[in-house]
Design a protein around this nucleic acid. Structure first.
Lengths: 340, 340
DNA sequence: AATCAAAATGGAACCGTTACCATTTCATGA
DNA sequence: TCATGAAATGGTAACGGTTCCATTTTGATT
């Protein structure tokens, strides 16, 4: 014997609230919009009471349709499993909630086809703003958003021909700090390891800064790109072998690289510190691998929050983008891996 | 001299496509809905052409409004910075994209007030389904979703009085495997470390299984809860001190705990392996801390995808929940930390 | 050629809001 | 008391789709 739950609960509408409160749709709408003070205290009370009785909540779909924009912020993330991305997402999400937005998180897994699809969908949801950590170069699609009047902020990676603020690390400063630290610690030859730079302006920039900075400091240097087919272990050994007379160090372009290289060090039995190791991006475990891995930490929360601030600013003041680059300063966390 | 971009691009509507194609709104709607085959090939072509000319894409807000449901899946995550949660989110997100849904990710930071707010919003967006990794006990709110006909799936954690599938690890099996492994390795006294169990049914269950399982195996055992005020370092030392005649091991209830305890081991200078260490949840760095930390890995991707399958099943077949528990089998990854 | 069912297409109402404009209410000063 | 403007409130047409129902077209059958 089953109890039939016939009240397959429709959610209540503005009209029902209006009726119960003895008011008009318009007044109820005003109450829940930002014109509550235009209503007499009496009416406010009646509406408040009716709404809570009916458990009313404005339908965001209807609002979005009517207003031409939703209260959604779209966020495109290149790799959601990267702790750095997660940390930033966390910052963005917090800021969203604070201002009544919800976050539509779209992970692209570094695949531009997925990126394209996601951007299409985000368009269809008429997002109020877009935070993009790009994979490929979705120029045209992003331009379309901008043309439609949707504010866009680029996170960490630039996209060519897109006029939007870029929020991220000061890469020049990061690389400089790293090289300064390494040479201060007495390392004379540095290998920079990076993932494929084509995908990301940041990777390119760090690579360029590295080459330039290493040269300025008269450091022996080389670079290694982690592509699928190179034998990284061999490349690393080779670098060490060609610099027998120097104290060698490896600088990792991001957290993923640090992970890979640390594994490599262990496989090769390289003593951390004697061969220096340093990475951009702080990770949970950097203090756990003895004697600790030196890193440059990014202020992820600040970056995320700033990204949303940019959007909010442009959403409210309808100004067009002032293609600035907002660069944040990394924090050096020195540990044993760069102590000889 | 500035070029004024006066075409502050409105996106094109179904009506415009209809006009350009010389067809009716209805036909265009059918084309983009799932009744394309009802249209004559000629008409399909005309519409396709018009749509691509105008760069048309159906407005999801309008669709959602009309249909009473959006193509959004809401996901409530207790702690988005936990790699385990991220891995599952990744699985859910992939599955969503595959079926044309978008994922509204809501992080609660283990705060039930945030959870409440987020659930409200998700309601307002008329999500097609809800994946909940609960923090507190949002019983009433979730019941409201179910009453409204929105399918709900619980992830990892149950919520009392909510009839919904629970997708997650087979905790009994996990604890049993762990204890079997530990005692096979010769450990005789085991300390189970967990975060506050009030928040999470899973933590409670693992704790209970541990106590029962340890007793059955005649292991000396104790538990330690990581709350803010306990001196965990002291507690751990105390456990070791009270079992001088036994080979001791620590079992960690989840990834966060593993991180904390590993730090503790280092602070105390405990030799990994001689004092055993084992954790539930596999983490990036578990093979990096010498001699490697033994873990039970959860099939996160499968869990995430299954969660969405459940939703889809219930979205399409409108059946009411069959409050099953879908339990997944953990994989033991044995490393040096449990080798004496 | 006439008939008829099936296939193809279109008209219009409605989903739940908001925003413009119109109307009512109210307090104020002449 | 009445005019007057401001404040408070309400009516109604969109917003961009979907869906029911009606209409037209098509092709097969007699």
């Amino acid at each position: 014997m089953k109890t039939i739950m016939s009240s397959a609960g429709r959610r209540s509408t503005i009209l029902e609230v209006a009726r119960l409160a003895g008011a008009s749709k318009t007044s109820v709408s005003r109450y829940f919009g930002d014109e509550r003070e235009r209503l007499s205290p009496t009416l406010q009370d009646r509406i408040a009471h009716a709404a809570s009785t009916l458990d009313y909540q404005p339908n965001q779909m209807a609002r979005g349709l009517k207003g031409g924009r939703s209260k959604l912020i779209g966020m495109l993330v290149a790799d959601i499993r990267n702790p750095f991305s997660v940390a930033i997402t966390h910052g963005v999400e917090q800021a969203c909630r604070q201002y009544g937005y919800s976050l539509l998180v779209c992970n692209t897994d570094n695949d531009s086809e997925q990126e394209r699809q996601h951007l299409d969908l985000l368009g269809a949801y008429q997002v109020a703003g877009l935070v993009v950590n790009a994979t490929g170069s979705p120029e045209t699609q992003i331009q379309a958003f901008i043309r439609h009047g949707t504010p866009v902020v680029l996170l960490d990676r630039e996209v060519s021909n897109v006029d939007a603020e870029v929020v991220g690390l000061d890469n020049q400063l990061a690389i400089d700090s790293a090289l300064d630290h390494l040479s201060a610690q007495g390392y004379q030859a540095v290998l920079y390891v990076s993932e494929a730079p084509e995908q990301s302006s940041t990777r390119q920039r760090r690579l360029a800064c590295f080459n330039q900075g290493a040269q300025q400091r008269a450091l022996s240097h080389a670079t290694l790109l982690l592509t699928g087919d190179t034998n990284t272990r061999q490349a690393l050994s080779h670098f060490l072998a060609t610099h027998p007379q120097h104290a060698c160090a490896v600088l990792c372009g991001n957290g993923n690289v640090t992970l890979t290289v640390t594994r490599l060090f262990q496989q090769l039995g390289l003593p951390l510190g004697q061969v220096g190791l340093m990475g951009i991006d702080e990770l949970d475990w950097c203090d756990l691998v003895p004697p600790g891995i030196t890193t440059l930490a990014q202020p992820t929360d600040a970056i995320g929050k700033t990204a949303l601030q940019c959007l909010r600013h442009r959403i409210t003041s309808q100004t067009s983008p002032q293609p600035t680059t907002l660069s944040f300063t990394p924090t050096l966390i020195a540990r044993g891996s760069t102590r000889r």
